[in-house]
Design a protein around this nucleic acid. Structure first.
Lengths: 222, 222
DNA sequence: TAGATTGTTAATCGATTAACAATC
DNA sequence: TAGATTGTTAATCGATTAACAATC
């Protein structure tokens, strides 16, 4: 009964498997070997077999994997076979972009409402979800069974929204505010930090400049 | 002159260091030990010293690190001491959210223009950047020295925008379209995959359910 | 000087890759 | 059956942690 927690390395690759399997299924591919999937994803066949086998033997010797079956199984592993009720705190650009994003609407993630303090936004709707005033946030949480809080507020308000949601029994937070939120007891948090990937990209460009343009900068050791 | 490429693990942590140092500097902290920073960030002191030392000895024995100096150095390492000219392909919710996002506007990332095929959007402006028709994308790239392309189009158009930018000498792409774009010769790419972090979060919730609710599901091995 | 803390080398740990027996 | 490919164990590699001499 006791089993090891799946490593972050594997948990991070699961959505990529799902995305590629979805594309392959849409393209009509039904059979796939770990070697073929590896070439497509830039991973080794060995790693793919290791990853998939953390969850059970979904393949068949001599044949490979059945694309629709494997896609469904990986979807179930990530809980995509059921609905996830979400609310979004902050109806600014990020909040509204999340509410519109089609990829996860298609996978059972449902936005029930957005919350903001800006009276000009309250009363509008985004993709059928109403924008409500933040003052009714707690009562809304009490009345609805919300599983995931999306934090799209300025950094200063993120912690407060998280605490209210935690107290109301919300199980997870998907945080876009540029702060590292510590994890309340019993919750799962994903800190997105949109600008981090841009800064890493900028770092790689700069690293490349330094290599090519002669190592005049001191931070490259010789 | 020849040196090892910085590992992805380190490159991914750099923006986090920068963010925490910025917060500490704003809070008036000037002196910091690796142990203190580690406690704050949830890393070991050892790892922090290893990471920082990839780039040079920025600390002082017996004292620790000088917060403003270290922040500036890490900023320079990521190239934040200069401007980065960007264009955004796709002026939908994601594209506009990126154009508004304050965190990287403050760090020298400048959006010169957005491009879209929707005539209703063309002519508008976002934070001072005009929305232009995609038909003038190539001529705009020819006339301006653009460093980073932000891809915020539907998946089907991502590759085309990337190829045009690559041909025009754009050096990097920050991709929000839900496809893994292969890297053109000489470019750096960051594939963001917004929904991946949500799916990983959902996976962790589901994993937790299975552990607690008895391992009736087969994918947990016993 | 004594205490503190870095920079750096060595040890450990975990993730990835390779290999191959099992089996479809 | 023969060929192919998985599931799984063993080997390798790289990243993290521990230890400690250097030094402020």
């Amino acid at each position: 009964m006791e089993q090891e927690r799946i490593s972050d390395a594997v948990a991070r690759r699961l959505p990529g498997y799902y995305r590629h399997l979805r594309e392959l299924e849409a393209a009509g591919v039904t059979r796939l070997s770990s070697r073929e999937l590896g070439e497509r994803m830039g991973l080794t066949a060995s790693q793919i077999r290791q990853d998939i086998n953390r969850f059970g033997g979904f393949g068949q010797q001599g044949y490979g994997y059945h694309v629709p079956d494997l896609k469904r199984c990986i979807g179930e592993i990530m809980g995509l076979d059921r609905e996830h009720a979400m609310v979004i705190c902050g109806a600014g650009n990020i909040g509204r972009a999340v509410a519109h994003y089609p990829t996860f609407r298609n996978e059972g993630f449902r936005v029930l409402a957005l919350f903001d303090v800006d009276e000009a936004l309250v009363g509008q709707a985004v993709q059928g979800a109403p924008i409500l005033h933040f003052s009714v946030f707690e009562s809304f949480l009490a009345e609805h069974d919300i599983e995931i809080l999306v934090i799209a507020t300025p950094a200063a308000h993120a912690r407060r929204a998280l605490e209210m949601a935690s107290a109301a029994g919300v199980r997870a937070a998907w945080n876009f505010a540029p702060v590292d939120l510590s994890v309340p007891e019993g919750m799962e948090i994903a800190n997105v930090h949109l600008s981090d990937s841009l800064m890493s990209l900028s770092f790689r460009l700069h690293e490349r400049d330094i290599r090519q343009g002669g190592a005049s900068k001191r931070w490259i050791k010789e």
